[in-house]
């Protein structure tokens, strides 16, 4: 009887997990108000949809095991109504819309209200040394331009640096055969990890006066980007998820943008429908993280154990096959097993 019940629970858990892994875009924001003990995150748009899917699958996994008491995993989108109350008992806060605003909220407001931050950049100067960046998956960042527009198929890192420092402002300065038109470089929001990583990858230019800041990262549907002369950085993994795995929504989609080559290397392996491994093995490859607090990450209490159960090297994200499928079908690359859950800090 007990064995039958165990098998039944396992089947239910597997069915729920597989359904979560193969579904299209996951629901935005937590469907219920998370409880104080739950693991709740905010931050980057790049891994927002992935964490919505993680939340659904992980909570389904626990339920399938008959576990009604372990902390559940929830993730707040980077877009949507604001302010938000992240969990019961937490104060309302302005919705964080990127890793920068996520970390600011994480490090400054009611600490128990946010347990982790989705980060699409590594630690950098100014981050508290008590913020631990736990590796989750690999991504890459390239540049995009409108399909049928004036941009070429390839730009070098040096050309991109010149475009964003505004020393190159016309396509003719790139190649005389290109259109005689003014280049319109855009950058995502100031706290975007895609923005800071991209700028670092092209040599850290100080964005010049020709650069416009503002669109949400990885959303080519913003009307300002529908222009033949736009250049806009983009998460390659997020792009792959949107284009090849049905992760796009009406707003979270490439729109008219297509991802372009850097230094002659294509960012996407269109045959395998993944990030091109050769592209990821350049300065344009990056690691995606969950940021947690050092003291909580190493604590031996139930909260510390719950964090490690989700994010640790032996945790659900690194070890569960459904999580692996979700990482791949959101367009990202998995890390070597031993590297998943490894940590770093500034």
């Amino acid at each position: 009887m007990r064995r039958t019940m165990g098998k039944l629970l396992a089947v239910v858990a597997l069915a729920g997990s597989l359904a979560a892994a193969t579904a299209g875009p996951a629901l935005a924001d937590p469907p219920v108000l998370p409880q104080p003990q739950d693991i709740v995150g905010v931050g980057s748009h790049t891994t927002g949809p992935l964490f919505n899917a993680f939340s659904a699958a992980y909570n389904s996994y626990l339920t399938g095991l008959g576990d009604t008491t372990s902390p559940r995993l929830y993730s707040w989108d980077s877009t949507g109504p604001s302010p938000i109350t992240t969990k019961a008992g937490a104060p309302a806060i302005v919705r964080p819309y990127d890793v920068g605003t996520g970390l600011a909220a994480f490090n400054s407001v009611f600490p128990a209200g946010i347990d982790f931050v989705r980060a699409d950049r590594g630690p950098q100067g100014g981050d508290p040394t008590t913020d631990v960046f736990v590796a989750l998956a690999k991504d890459a960042v390239s540049w995009t331009a409108t399909n049928g527009g004036h941009a070429p198929a390839n730009l070098t890192a040096a050309q991109l640096r010149n475009i964003y420092s505004c020393t190159v402002t016309n396509w003719r300065q790139i190649e005389p055969s290109l259109a005689n038109a003014t280049i319109k470089p855009f950058l995502p929001t100031a706290g975007s990890g895609t923005r800071s990583f991209f700028l670092a990858a092209i040599g850290n230019p100080i964005p010049g006066p020709c650069v416009t800041t503002g669109p949400q990262e990885n959303q080519g549907t913003d009307p300002v980007l529908n222009d033949p002369d736009v250049v806009f950085p983009y998460s390659v993994g997020h792009y792959v998820g949107q284009v090849y795995y049905g992760r796009a929504t009406t707003t979270d989609a490439p729109g008219p943008l297509t991802v372009r080559n850097v230094n002659g290397i294509a960012p996407v392996n269109t045959t395998a429908q993944t990030i091109n491994a050769a592209f990821a093995a350049t300065a344009f490859g990056r690691v995606l993280y969950d940021v947690v607090r050092q003291a909580e990450w190493t604590a031996t209490d139930a909260h510390g154990q719950a964090l490690r159960n989700v994010f640790g090297n032996l945790g659900w994200i690194c070890r569960n096959s459904v999580a692996t499928v979700l990482i791949k079908t959101h367009g990202f690359l998995t890390l070597p097993l031993a590297a998943c859950g490894s940590s770093t800090h500034s």
Binding site: N313, A338, S342, S343, T344
Partner: peptide, 11 residues
């Protein structure tokens, strides 16, 4: 040989 356990990287 493969690194395992608790791993930390830094620069």
């Amino acid at each position: 040989l493969d690194p395992a356990g608790d791993s930390q990287v830094s620069r």
